[in-house]
């Protein structure tokens, strides 16, 4: 990589203070996203993939504390930036689409106005032009009769339509990076496909990078250039998509893949992952948080630090990789 990446997350750790103890939600995670690249962040619930997204957006709540690390976005130190710079950045350079599209829209404002709001705030345009550009954006995200739909309220639109509006809002100012947090979960399968087509297409046309957070390995396979696999707050593997699924190297990636139903496999050919996530509030978390569930565990796994080996563009955090 000659050019510096668009986003680089280095050695990032995040904790949550709760009533029942400190949750070590992220521990020393690192990854990077290049300009125009689509990177999938996959993992099960509790893996820390959404926390990662919210940390990058600097949208964490008060209970969270960033204990170490650095987030560089296009040359800007995100953790050192002040609130004004961040507000300016979000929506213009860095956008997000959410899992529940309807809930992320304001229910009592017309969708056209909601798109225009973003333009007024960030794009330095007048009210009239903002309205016109909102309609153009609606057309661009594939909404039929855009000038009529601009006057609709979110409840008048289907879930798929609402997600298209969400995308229009996110892309209004041509951001360099789009963070998509489970953007199609809860939508119908046929709608999921068209929404993801739209995201890929717009991403390609605008040279936009995408961070796709998903639990769906199929989606990651189909849409991502590279996949970052997370487990219990660690990045366990980071590899180009084809290489990752052809030969997963981290035992967790392998087991996750083996547990996913695919055509041509019978139920007996699908294996389970033993055990569950460790309690992230524990003080004596092992260096490798998968070790208690792992059948390739060796004595070395109990000794810190967790190795993070990069070889041929792939990162594997394991003492005994496949």
């Amino acid at each position: 990589m000659s050019q510096p990446p668009l986003l680089s997350v280095e050695d990032l750790s995040v904790e949550f203070r709760t009533r029942s103890g400190t949750v070590r939600a992220l521990e020393a995670i690192s990854f990077a996203i290049a300009r125009g690249e689509t990177v999938g962040v996959v993992g099960e619930s509790g893996s820390g993939k959404s926390v990662t997204a919210y940390t990058v957006m600097r949208l964490l709540d008060d209970a969270a504390r960033i204990t170490s690390g650095r987030i560089m976005f296009g040359g800007l130190d995100m953790l050192g930036a002040d609130a004004g710079t961040l507000a300016e950045l979000r929506g213009r350079e860095l956008s997000m689409i959410f899992q529940n599209p309807r809930a992320s829209l304001n229910p009592i404002r017309r969708v056209g106005q909601q798109i225009a709001d973003v333009l007024l705030r960030h794009a330095n345009v007048g009210a009239k032009e903002a309205g016109e550009r909102a309609v153009a954006l609606l057309a661009e995200v594939g909404i039929p009769e855009p000038s009529r739909r601009a006057k609709a309220y979110p409840f008048e639109l289907s879930g798929g339509m609402c997600q298209r509006i969400g995308i229009a809002i996110a892309l209004a100012c041509r951001p360099a990076l789009l963070i998509a947090d489970e953007p199609t979960t809860g939508l119908d399968v046929t709608t999921q496909a068209t929404i993801m087509d739209l995201v890929s297409e717009l991403g390609r046309a605008r040279g936009m990078a995408t961070m796709l957070i998903t639990h769906d390995l199929g989606l990651a396979t189909e849409r991502c250039d590279r996949v970052v696999v997370m487990h219990a707050g660690h990045v366990v593997e980071d590899a180009p998509t084809a290489a990752l699924f052809a030969a997963p190297r981290h035992p967790y990636t392998a087991r996750l893949f083996a547990a996913t139903p695919r055509p041509g496999l019978a139920l007996s050919e699908i294996s389970t992952i033993p055990g569950g996530l460790p309690d992230l509030r524990r003080d004596d978390l092992p260096p490798c948080r998968f070790s208690t569930r792992c059948d390739r565990r060796r004595d070395a796994c109990d000794a810190p630090p967790l190795p993070r080996v990069t070889h041929q563009g792939r990162l594997v955090a394991c003492h005994n990789p496949l």
Partner: peptide
């Protein structure tokens, strides 16, 4: 519309538009 984990499918796909 269904993406298959670990498998990129070739050829044209049928897509639905509208509701």
């Amino acid at each position: 519309s269904v993406a298959v984990p670990g498998q990129i499918r070739e050829g044209p796909r049928l897509r639905l538009s509208g509701d």
